[in-house]
Design a protein around this nucleic acid. Structure first.
Lengths: 106, 106
DNA sequence: AGATGAAGCCTAGATGATCTAGGTAAAATG
DNA sequence: CATTTTACCTAGATCATCTAGGCTTCATCT
Protein backbone atom coordinates (compact mmCIF):
# COMPACT_ATOMS: atom_id res chain seq x y z
CA UNK A 1 0.00 0.00 0.00
CA UNK A 2 1.33 3.42 -0.79
CA UNK A 3 2.69 5.60 1.97
CA UNK A 4 -0.08 8.00 1.10
CA UNK A 5 -2.53 5.75 2.82
CA UNK A 6 -0.66 5.02 5.99
CA UNK A 7 -3.13 5.09 8.83
CA UNK A 8 -6.00 4.08 6.62
CA UNK A 9 -5.59 0.35 7.01
CA UNK A 10 -7.65 0.15 10.19
CA UNK A 11 -10.48 1.97 8.50
CA UNK A 12 -10.42 -0.37 5.51
CA UNK A 13 -10.40 -3.45 7.72
CA UNK A 14 -13.27 -2.16 9.84
CA UNK A 15 -15.21 -1.39 6.72
CA UNK A 16 -14.83 -4.72 4.95
CA UNK A 17 -15.77 -6.50 8.18
CA UNK A 18 -18.94 -4.49 8.65
CA UNK A 19 -21.10 -6.66 6.36
CA UNK A 20 -19.97 -9.76 8.26
CA UNK A 21 -17.04 -11.86 9.48
CA UNK A 22 -14.06 -12.64 7.31
CA UNK A 23 -10.72 -14.33 7.87
CA UNK A 24 -7.44 -12.42 7.59
CA UNK A 25 -6.53 -13.67 4.18
CA UNK A 26 -10.04 -12.94 2.95
CA UNK A 27 -9.88 -9.38 4.27
CA UNK A 28 -6.84 -8.74 2.13
CA UNK A 29 -8.50 -10.25 -0.91
CA UNK A 30 -11.69 -8.30 -0.36
CA UNK A 31 -9.90 -4.95 -0.11
CA UNK A 32 -8.01 -5.82 -3.26
CA UNK A 33 -11.12 -6.78 -5.21
CA UNK A 34 -13.43 -4.01 -4.01
CA UNK A 35 -10.79 -1.38 -4.76
CA UNK A 36 -10.51 -2.84 -8.27
CA UNK A 37 -6.97 -3.93 -7.53
CA UNK A 38 -5.89 -0.42 -6.62
CA UNK A 39 -5.11 -1.43 -3.03
CA UNK A 40 -2.93 -4.33 -2.04
CA UNK A 41 -2.28 -5.00 1.64
CA UNK A 42 0.88 -6.87 2.55
CA UNK A 43 0.34 -9.76 4.92
CA UNK A 44 3.10 -8.36 7.09
CA UNK A 45 0.92 -5.28 7.57
CA UNK A 46 -2.41 -7.04 7.70
CA UNK A 47 -1.88 -9.57 10.46
CA UNK A 48 -0.19 -7.21 12.91
CA UNK A 49 -3.01 -4.74 12.25
CA UNK A 50 -5.57 -7.41 13.12
CA UNK A 51 -3.80 -8.18 16.41
CA UNK A 52 -3.63 -4.51 17.31
CA UNK A 53 -7.28 -4.05 16.56
CA UNK A 54 -8.27 -7.15 18.48
CA UNK A 55 -6.21 -5.91 21.44
CA UNK A 56 -8.04 -2.59 21.26
CA UNK A 57 -11.33 -4.42 21.46
CA UNK A 58 -12.51 -3.48 17.99
CA UNK A 59 -12.42 -7.03 16.67
CA UNK A 60 -13.03 -10.46 18.07
CA UNK A 61 -11.56 -13.57 16.51
CA UNK A 62 -12.29 -17.25 16.54
CA UNK A 63 -11.01 -20.26 14.67
CA UNK A 64 -13.32 -21.59 12.02
CA UNK A 65 -13.50 -22.15 8.30
CA UNK A 66 -12.89 -19.93 5.31
CA UNK A 67 -15.32 -19.76 2.40
CA UNK A 68 -13.12 -22.34 0.70
CA UNK A 69 -13.47 -24.68 3.64
CA UNK A 70 -9.98 -24.18 5.00
CA UNK A 71 -9.00 -23.70 8.60
CA UNK A 72 -9.05 -19.96 9.18
CA UNK A 73 -9.20 -17.32 11.88
CA UNK A 74 -12.46 -15.44 11.51
CA UNK A 75 -12.64 -11.80 12.57
CA UNK A 76 -15.77 -9.84 13.26
CA UNK A 77 -16.58 -6.37 14.55
CA UNK A 78 -17.37 -5.78 18.19
CA UNK A 79 -19.71 -3.03 19.26
CA UNK A 80 -16.67 -0.85 19.93
CA UNK A 81 -15.44 -1.75 16.45
CA UNK A 82 -18.67 -0.55 14.91
CA UNK A 83 -18.50 2.85 16.54
CA UNK A 84 -14.80 3.05 15.77
CA UNK A 85 -15.72 2.53 12.12
CA UNK A 86 -18.12 5.43 12.26
CA UNK A 87 -15.54 7.66 13.91
CA UNK A 88 -12.80 6.82 11.46
CA UNK A 89 -15.10 7.20 8.51
CA UNK A 90 -15.97 10.74 9.61
CA UNK A 91 -12.32 11.54 10.25
CA UNK A 92 -11.40 10.27 6.83
CA UNK A 93 -14.09 12.33 5.11
CA UNK A 94 -12.99 15.48 6.87
CA UNK A 95 -9.34 14.85 6.18
CA UNK A 96 -9.89 13.99 2.53
CA UNK A 97 -11.97 17.11 2.16
CA UNK A 98 -9.34 19.27 3.82
CA UNK A 99 -6.68 17.94 1.49
CA UNK A 100 -8.88 18.43 -1.54
CA UNK A 101 -9.34 21.99 -0.36
CA UNK A 102 -5.60 22.60 -0.25
CA UNK A 103 -5.06 20.93 -3.62
CA UNK A 104 -7.61 23.26 -5.18
CA UNK A 105 -7.09 26.55 -3.43
CA UNK A 106 -3.52 26.72 -2.19
CA UNK B 1 -1.85 16.09 11.68
CA UNK B 2 -3.85 12.91 12.01
CA UNK B 3 -2.21 9.59 11.30
CA UNK B 4 -4.74 9.24 8.54
CA UNK B 5 -2.76 11.67 6.48
CA UNK B 6 0.70 10.32 7.01
CA UNK B 7 2.56 10.53 3.74
CA UNK B 8 0.52 13.46 2.55
CA UNK B 9 2.69 16.17 3.99
CA UNK B 10 5.05 16.28 1.02
CA UNK B 11 2.13 16.69 -1.32
CA UNK B 12 0.70 19.55 0.72
CA UNK B 13 4.04 21.32 0.89
CA UNK B 14 4.62 20.97 -2.84
CA UNK B 15 1.15 22.28 -3.50
CA UNK B 16 1.31 25.40 -1.34
CA UNK B 17 4.69 26.24 -2.85
CA UNK B 18 3.45 25.99 -6.40
CA UNK B 19 2.06 29.52 -6.56
CA UNK B 20 5.38 30.91 -5.35
CA UNK B 21 8.06 30.81 -2.66
CA UNK B 22 7.24 30.71 1.02
CA UNK B 23 9.24 30.32 4.20
CA UNK B 24 8.83 27.30 6.46
CA UNK B 25 6.72 28.99 9.06
CA UNK B 26 4.55 30.47 6.33
CA UNK B 27 4.03 27.07 4.73
CA UNK B 28 2.57 25.78 7.97
CA UNK B 29 0.33 28.81 8.28
CA UNK B 30 -0.81 28.56 4.70
CA UNK B 31 -1.80 24.91 5.00
CA UNK B 32 -3.65 25.75 8.18
CA UNK B 33 -5.55 28.65 6.64
CA UNK B 34 -6.35 27.11 3.27
CA UNK B 35 -7.66 23.95 4.93
CA UNK B 36 -9.88 26.16 7.08
CA UNK B 37 -7.95 25.11 10.17
CA UNK B 38 -8.61 21.42 9.54
CA UNK B 39 -4.90 20.70 9.06
CA UNK B 40 -2.20 21.69 11.50
CA UNK B 41 1.40 20.74 10.79
CA UNK B 42 3.76 20.48 13.74
CA UNK B 43 7.04 22.29 13.29
CA UNK B 44 8.80 19.10 14.26
CA UNK B 45 7.29 17.50 11.19
CA UNK B 46 7.50 20.46 8.89
CA UNK B 47 11.17 21.37 9.08
CA UNK B 48 12.49 17.84 8.72
CA UNK B 49 10.15 17.38 5.75
CA UNK B 50 11.58 20.48 4.13
CA UNK B 51 15.14 19.18 4.56
CA UNK B 52 14.20 15.82 3.09
CA UNK B 53 12.56 17.45 0.13
CA UNK B 54 15.43 19.80 -0.44
CA UNK B 55 17.82 16.84 -0.32
CA UNK B 56 15.70 15.06 -2.91
CA UNK B 57 16.02 18.08 -5.18
CA UNK B 58 12.35 19.01 -5.09
CA UNK B 59 12.92 22.30 -3.28
CA UNK B 60 15.58 24.92 -3.22
CA UNK B 61 16.07 27.23 -0.29
CA UNK B 62 17.67 30.59 0.34
CA UNK B 63 17.80 33.03 3.19
CA UNK B 64 15.66 36.10 2.76
CA UNK B 65 12.73 37.86 4.33
CA UNK B 66 9.27 36.79 5.32
CA UNK B 67 6.17 38.78 4.39
CA UNK B 68 6.46 40.38 7.86
CA UNK B 69 10.01 41.48 7.14
CA UNK B 70 11.69 38.93 9.36
CA UNK B 71 14.74 36.86 8.54
CA UNK B 72 13.41 33.65 7.01
CA UNK B 73 14.41 30.67 4.90
CA UNK B 74 12.50 30.85 1.63
CA UNK B 75 11.63 27.64 -0.18
CA UNK B 76 10.62 27.30 -3.79
CA UNK B 77 9.89 24.43 -6.17
CA UNK B 78 12.53 23.13 -8.51
CA UNK B 79 11.62 21.66 -11.87
CA UNK B 80 11.83 18.21 -10.28
CA UNK B 81 9.56 19.49 -7.52
CA UNK B 82 6.97 20.56 -10.05
CA UNK B 83 6.79 17.17 -11.69
CA UNK B 84 6.83 15.49 -8.30
CA UNK B 85 3.79 17.55 -7.43
CA UNK B 86 2.00 16.29 -10.51
CA UNK B 87 2.91 12.70 -9.73
CA UNK B 88 1.84 12.89 -6.11
CA UNK B 89 -1.36 14.64 -7.00
CA UNK B 90 -2.29 11.82 -9.37
CA UNK B 91 -1.35 9.20 -6.79
CA UNK B 92 -3.45 10.91 -4.20
CA UNK B 93 -6.48 11.10 -6.47
CA UNK B 94 -6.24 7.41 -7.31
CA UNK B 95 -5.73 6.43 -3.70
CA UNK B 96 -8.56 8.60 -2.40
CA UNK B 97 -10.82 7.16 -5.08
CA UNK B 98 -9.86 3.60 -4.21
CA UNK B 99 -10.62 4.21 -0.55
CA UNK B 100 -13.92 5.87 -1.36
CA UNK B 101 -14.71 2.78 -3.43
CA UNK B 102 -14.09 0.49 -0.47
CA UNK B 103 -16.04 2.70 1.91
CA UNK B 104 -19.02 2.56 -0.42
CA UNK B 105 -18.99 -0.97 -1.75
CA UNK B 106 -17.25 -3.20 0.73
C1' DA C 1 14.42 49.78 30.73
C1' DG C 2 12.76 45.29 31.40
C1' DA C 3 9.40 41.77 30.65
C1' DT C 4 6.63 39.34 27.61
C1' DG C 5 5.24 37.29 23.65
C1' DA C 6 5.32 36.34 18.84
C1' DA C 7 7.91 35.14 14.64
C1' DG C 8 10.95 31.98 12.98
C1' DC C 9 14.22 28.27 12.78
C1' DC C 10 16.31 23.91 14.62
C1' DT C 11 16.93 19.10 16.57
C1' DA C 12 17.42 14.70 19.39
C1' DG C 13 14.83 11.04 20.62
C1' DA C 14 10.42 8.43 20.98
C1' DT C 15 6.65 6.44 18.78
C1' DG C 16 4.31 3.54 15.80
C1' DA C 17 2.62 1.84 11.44
C1' DT C 18 4.11 -0.49 7.53
C1' DC C 19 7.11 -3.36 4.79
C1' DT C 20 10.72 -6.97 3.94
C1' DA C 21 11.64 -11.32 4.01
C1' DG C 22 11.46 -14.82 5.65
C1' DG C 23 8.95 -19.25 7.92
C1' DT C 24 5.17 -23.11 8.68
C1' DA C 25 1.33 -26.36 7.47
C1' DA C 26 -2.40 -28.38 4.90
C1' DA C 27 -4.96 -29.09 0.87
C1' DA C 28 -5.42 -29.00 -4.11
C1' DT C 29 -3.47 -29.55 -8.53
C1' DG C 30 -0.46 -31.25 -12.06
C1' DC D 1 5.25 -36.93 -6.02
C1' DA D 2 6.21 -32.05 -6.86
C1' DT D 3 4.24 -27.70 -7.04
C1' DT D 4 0.98 -24.21 -6.18
C1' DT D 5 -2.47 -22.18 -3.41
C1' DT D 6 -4.54 -21.11 0.85
C1' DA D 7 -3.67 -19.38 5.22
C1' DC D 8 -1.32 -17.88 9.20
C1' DC D 9 2.78 -16.02 11.70
C1' DT D 10 6.85 -12.98 13.06
C1' DA D 11 11.42 -10.58 13.83
C1' DG D 12 13.66 -6.77 12.32
C1' DA D 13 14.23 -2.67 9.34
C1' DT D 14 12.53 1.52 7.66
C1' DC D 15 10.69 5.91 7.80
C1' DA D 16 7.50 9.62 8.71
C1' DT D 17 5.66 12.06 12.32
C1' DC D 18 5.35 13.90 16.93
C1' DT D 19 7.11 15.41 21.57
C1' DA D 20 9.41 18.51 23.78
C1' DG D 21 12.48 20.92 24.16
C1' DG D 22 16.02 25.07 22.62
C1' DC D 23 17.64 29.38 20.21
C1' DT D 24 17.41 34.36 18.29
C1' DT D 25 15.33 38.62 16.96
C1' DC D 26 11.97 42.01 17.06
C1' DA D 27 7.73 44.34 18.74
C1' DT D 28 4.86 45.62 22.41
C1' DC D 29 3.39 46.66 26.98
C1' DT D 30 4.16 48.40 31.55
Amino acid sequence: MADLLAGTLDLLILRVLSPGPLHGFGIGERIHVVSRKALEIEEGSLYPALYRMEAKGWLKAEWGQSARGRRARLYSLTKAGCSQLETEQKNWSQAALAIAEVLKNA
